[in-house]
């Protein structure tokens, strides 16, 4: 994991999450904006997957359990996809809130992943 990239990703996920929850509570149905924010979070997760696979070859090894790290990463990748499918099936304001909840959940999972990668086993 590259630390600054992970932090940027957490920031995007938090902002995207707050944006979607805000839009949803204002009564907006899922739009390009809220779906786009969720898609961005997903895209960054896929980038993170590539980074996580490549990083050990450059000497950037996880300090904690790789099994735990990848369990978080794979779960996190599934979350925005599920929320987006939900939003496509049911176009209501609550689907927008759910998009936001998914982004915030990803943010928490990313933070845990960063902890596993950087500060465990020291």
């Amino acid at each position: 994991m590259i630390e600054w990239f992970a932090w940027a990703q957490v920031a995007v996920a938090v902002l995207g999450g707050l944006l979607c929850i805000g839009l949803g509570l204002l009564g907006r149905k899922p739009t390009d904006l809220s779906m786009g924010a969720t898609a961005l979070v997903e895209l960054l997760l896929l980038a993170q997957l590539v980074v996580a696979i490549v990083a050990p070859f450059t000497g950037n090894n996880a300090s904690g359990s790789l099994l735990e790290f990848y369990t978080y990463l794979v779960s996190a990748i599934l979350v925005p996809v599920t929320a987006a499918i939900w939003a496509l099936i049911e176009r209501s304001r609550w689907s927008t809130v759910i998009l936001g909840a998914a982004c915030l959940a990803v943010a928490v999972m990313l933070y845990r992943m960063l902890q596993i990668w950087t500060v465990q086993g020291l």
Binding site: S65, L67, T82, W94, A101
Partner: peptide
């Protein structure tokens, strides 16, 4: 709003399953 409740339950179910999977395997 019940839909949101279900979504959050789903996320927590995923979190609990993931953690439990790691604990039991490792």
């Amino acid at each position: 709003v019940g839909r949101v409740l279900i979504a959050v339950y789903g996320i927590l179910a995923l979190a609990a399953t993931g953690r439990s999977f790691v604990q039991i395997v490792s």
